[in-house]
Simulated assay, not measured.
Amino acid sequence: MAYPRIALTGGIASGKSTVSSMLKELGCEIIDADQIAREIIQPGTNCWKRLRELLGPAAFSENGSLKRMELRMKIAKDPELRKRINAITHPYIIESMEETWRKHITSHPERIVIFDIPLLFESRRSDSFNFIIVVYVPPEVQIARLIKRDRISYDEAAKMIDMQIPINEKARRADWIIDNSGSFEQTKKQVHQLWEHLKTIWSPIKEGLS
């Protein structure tokens, strides 16, 4: 029995994690791609071993963990390196997400499941979903939040944003948009409206995407 596949995405510093947390509080099961990405690169995993071969020991701390912030800044300047890293990590992430999806649908089919995938469009996986939610803020808000959050320069923030598909394009391709440029309460109200809609579409569907 197949259920709708629902994805949540957004741009960097758009507040997607806040929306994801709100949906979880309402009762959604969240399959978090970022969390899975952290799990698959734990020291000793197959993915970790392959990354270490690619990046070398200097990219890892003494305890074996990947220096994520340093790597993030490095790949912002090296698109080819980013592609090589994604080629290693994405198959592991997808495999883990799909396994988690199957477990949720089998054990608790009554609970709405949402895939939280920051790079949904960039990874060309949008066609795998029936319903896509985009958390939106204007690009200038993205930059301001990123500068404050990561304590980086305007140029560094702009480069990180340029690595992704423009957020306006993501919004254009969405089935539902959460505008997170206002207050917390305004966002919360929109999430509750979304939740009510999701409850109306969460039911078995015919095999294959509609």
Score class of each variant (00 low, 15 high):
29 E>R: 12
30 I>C: 09
30 I>N: 08
30 I>V: 05
31 I>Q: 08
32 D>V: 07
33 A>G: 03
34 D>M: 11
34 D>A: 07
35 Q>R: 13
37 A>F: 06
38 R>I: 03
38 R>Y: 09
40 I>M: 02
43 P>E: 10
43 P>R: 01
44 G>K: 07
44 G>E: 07
46 N>H: 14
49 K>F: 03
50 R>Q: 15
51 L>N: 06
51 L>W: 09
51 L>A: 05
52 R>Q: 15
53 E>I: 11
54 L>V: 02
55 L>A: 04
56 G>V: 03
60 F>R: 08
62 E>C: 05
63 N>H: 10
63 N>Q: 14
65 S>V: 11
66 L>D: 09
67 K>C: 09
68 R>C: 11
68 R>F: 10
69 M>G: 11
69 M>L: 15
70 E>K: 10
71 L>V: 04
72 R>F: 13
75 I>W: 10
77 K>L: 15
78 D>N: 15
78 D>W: 02
79 P>Q: 07
79 P>Y: 06
80 E>C: 05
81 L>D: 09
81 L>A: 02
81 L>P: 09
87 A>M: 08
89 T>E: 14
91 P>T: 00
92 Y>H: 12
92 Y>S: 09
95 E>K: 14
96 S>E: 15
97 M>R: 03
98 E>D: 12
98 E>I: 05
99 E>Y: 00
100 T>R: 14
101 W>E: 11
102 R>M: 12
108 H>R: 13
109 P>T: 00
109 P>Q: 02
109 P>L: 06
110 E>V: 01
110 E>G: 02
111 R>L: 08
112 I>V: 12
112 I>A: 04
115 F>R: 04
119 L>H: 03
121 F>Y: 12
123 S>L: 14
123 S>M: 13
123 S>D: 10
125 R>G: 14
125 R>E: 15
125 R>T: 11
126 S>W: 11
126 S>A: 15
127 D>W: 12
128 S>A: 15
130 N>T: 00
131 F>I: 05
133 I>L: 08
133 I>W: 08
137 V>G: 05
137 V>A: 06
139 P>Y: 00
140 E>S: 10
142 Q>V: 00
142 Q>Y: 04
142 Q>C: 06
142 Q>M: 04
144 A>P: 03
146 L>A: 05
148 K>A: 14
149 R>Q: 11
152 I>G: 00
152 I>R: 01
153 S>T: 15
155 D>Y: 08
155 D>K: 14
156 E>Q: 13
157 A>G: 09
160 M>I: 10
163 M>F: 05
163 M>L: 15
164 Q>W: 11
164 Q>R: 08
165 I>S: 09
165 I>G: 01
167 I>D: 01
169 E>C: 07
169 E>D: 14
170 K>D: 01
170 K>L: 06
171 A>Q: 08
171 A>S: 07
172 R>C: 09
172 R>W: 10
